[in-house]
Write a protein that binds this DNA or RNA. Structure first.
Length: 592
RNA sequence: GGUCCCGUGGUGCAGCGGCCUAGCAUACGUCCCUGUCAAGGACGAGAUCGCCGGUUCGAAUCCGGUCGGGACCGCCA
């Protein structure tokens, strides 16, 4: 070893001992005949000091050193003189009096500060990630991720789960997200896909009798990123045999409750977690991943406008529509622009308009007040419980459109107005999802996962009569309005699985071609099984309170999937393309 | 595919038609300095304001395009 101790270990107990440290120059304070440097490694910071008269060679070396040079320091740990101790540092009681300095490596002036917490352009950070990782914040996020994953592994292993690596070169499937694809050399013109998740493989492991499986699995999707999603992410992939819904939920809840208790900065608001059905989530919050840290629940005004003279409401109600609303506290004086912005948000989910009612004193001000009777205006106040100075936002439409429009408004306003109680995390389960849902062209698709089983045998039968009413054994883990993961009890018989595919218009032949391996496996004694797959990146984001997934990944990519560190993607060698039987048709439109 | 925001010495920001010969902080270089810890002090170097074009007597500043980054919509079983 090039060192006897780390830079975090220097304590009063070591006083008098000779130590050798190695690390980076964090800062340098040169007083002429007396020079200090703070030497930094992953473990901490230790002050090193040299006097010109006591040790000229070491003093000269410290004088020459610059930030981010790599030094090896031999010296004696000694208590700092009284009055010069630094209570801000864990190692502030002592310092190392340098006897010998060896420069292990010099450094160019770093492209940004390692020793300050200033914001730096992300492109620079990722390009020089090796410098960025030396910064405390970056290092602590990576540390947190490591510790969480370590905790998860121990938890799972203790409960009898086997960690199994599944293959990352699988069969491409046109459903779901766009696949990232890898060309095959032996089969020119054919491609592997990188897994969007190991879903089929983990189910096959259950058929293989492994009983309890987990994996920290890399998942890939070639879709446009957002702040909380990107090309690749990791999920804790879990699958169990001979279990029911409640078993998996109990395991997930125990794991995540202990993770939050151990790693979160804030306590969980409620343990055990609330379990909210999809129907209830949509009715109360207009979204299937509600943020329970604030109220502003959706209300129903349908009865108030039952016989309204206002044509828009009336016609909606005549067509079995509804009028739903939220109360925005204290926003009666919203500006025209604010209202326009809110209306635009509501329209994203299909609302045709947004009615506003501002409660001012005895009156209710609204752009549609002239169409409404005094009873209706009074009814708004009564039905919503809104107070003076509040703003009531209402959407008249089908139940789904009204609910979802107000759901996004609620989410937006919760954030914009800072309504959420940020002193806690609020975890909950959402379950009893629909099994299938309508596609825009009138067909059916799976609501979550094609392998998800029906809640009861009756729900499977409902596919024949009222598919939209069929519920599934899907459950989602939601924290602070963010979906951290989901899972389900799967179809373990071929018949059930094929029935669901049929509903989505996937013929037996198509299903066999796309999911043949799993379907065949179901023919050979597949046990009842189910699992869950929470995302690691979003978990760490939530624990750390960061809004950006790139911060919790060691080597992030940009919004276009570019890797500034490796300068990837890059053109492939023509010889390699030849071997793969590939010819590039599209000229690269962006030369780097 | 679309909407919005950003791009100014190494870094972070200011300036938003002429007072800009581009300001501040920090980093960087040289020198001074014996107890600092964001050390202090003095001096110095460092930018054709992302790029291209246009408007104007005059553009970092206004307009168009383009490139790069970010947020969002679409998309994401």
């Amino acid at each position: 070893m090039l060192r006897t101790h780390t830079c975090g270990e220097a304590r009063a107990a070591l006083a008098g001992k000779e130590v050798t440290l190695a690390g980076w120059v964090h800062t340098r304070r040169d007083h002429g005949e007396l020079t200090f440097i703070d030497l930094r490694d992953r473990y901490g910071i230790t002050q090193v000091v040299a006097h010109a008269k006591e040790n000229p060679a070491a003093h000269r070396a410290l004088g020459k050193a610059r930030n981010e040079w790599v030094l090896r320091v031999r010296g004696t740990v000694r208590p700092r003189p009284e009055g010069t101790k630094n209570p801000k540092l864990p190692t502030g009681e002592v310092e190392v009096a340098a006897a010998e300095i060896e420069v292990l490596n010099e450094s160019k002036t770093p492209p940004f500060y390692v020793n300050e917490e200033t914001e730096v352009d992300e492109n620079l950070r990722w390009k020089y990630r090796y410098v960025d990782l030396r910064r405390e914040r970056s290092r602590e996020l990576i540390r947190l991720r490591h510790e969480v994953v370590d905790f998860i592994r121990n938890f799972m292993v203790e409960r009898g789960f086997w960690e199994v690596e599944t293959t990352d070169l699988i069969r491409s499937d046109p459903t779901g997200a766009r696949d990232l694809v890898v060309p095959s050399r032996y089969y020119p013109g054919k491609f592997w896909a990188l897994p969007q998740s190991p879903q089929q493989l983990k189910q096959i492991l259950m058929v293989g009798g492994l009983d309890r499986y987990f994996q920290i699995a890399r998942c890939f999707r070639d879709e446009d990123p957002r702040a909380d999603r990107t090309l690749e992410h990791s999920q804790l992939d879990i699958e169990m045999s001979f279990v029911e819904k409640t078993d998996v939920m109990a395991l997930g809840e125990e794991l995540y409750t202990s993770i939050f208790q151990k790693f979160a900065r804030k306590p969980l608001k409620q343990v055990p977690w609330p379990r909210v059905t999809f129907e209830e989530a949509m009715r109360r919050f207009g979204i299937d991943r509600p943020d329970l840290r604030f109220g502003m629940e959706l209300l129903d005004l349908t009865d108030v406008f039952r016989s309204s003279g206002f044509k828009v409401f009336r016609e909606t109600l005549d067509q079995k529509g509804v009028v739903r609303a939220i109360v925005v506290p204290g926003k009666a004086k919203a500006t025209r622009k604010e209202i326009d912005d809110l209306t635009a948000i509501a329209k994203r989910k299909g609302a045709k308009g947004l009615a506003q009612f501002a409660l001012a004193g005895e009156t209710v001000e609204s752009q549609v007040a002239k169409f409404l009777s005094p009873e209706e205006l009074a009814g708004i106040r009564r039905a919503t419980g809104a107070k003076d100075g509040d703003l009531v936002l209402a959407v008249a439409d089908t139940y789904d459109v009204a609910s979802e429009s107000l759901g996004v408004l609620r989410e937006h306003l919760g954030q914009a107005l800072g309504l959420a109680d940020t002193s806690t995390h609020y975890a909950l389960w959402v379950h009893e999802f629909p099994l299938v849902q309508r596609t825009p062209d009138g067909g059916w698709t799976f609501a979550h996962n094609p392998f998800c089983g029906p809640l009861t045998p009756h729900d499977l039968e409902l596919l024949d009569t009222a598919p939209e009413k069929a519920r599934s054994k899907q459950y989602d883990l939601v924290v602070d309005g963010r979906e951290l993961g989901g899972g389900s009890i799967r179809n373990h018989t071929r018949a059930a699985q094929e029935r669901i595919f049929a509903q989505m218009g996937v013929s037996k032949g198509d299903a066999q071609e796309r999911f043949g391996a799993l379907l065949d496996a179901l023919d050979y004694g597949a046990p009842p099984h189910g699992g869950i797959a929470p995302g690691i990146d979003r978990l760490v984001m939530t624990l750390a309170g960061t809004e950006n997934i790139r911060e919790v990944q060691a080597f992030p990519k940009t919004q276009t999937g570019y890797d500034p560190l490796l300068d990837a993607p890059a053109a492939a060698d023509p010889k390699l393309l030849e071997e793969l039987g590939l010819r590039v048709v599209a000229k690269p439109d962006k030369e780097r």
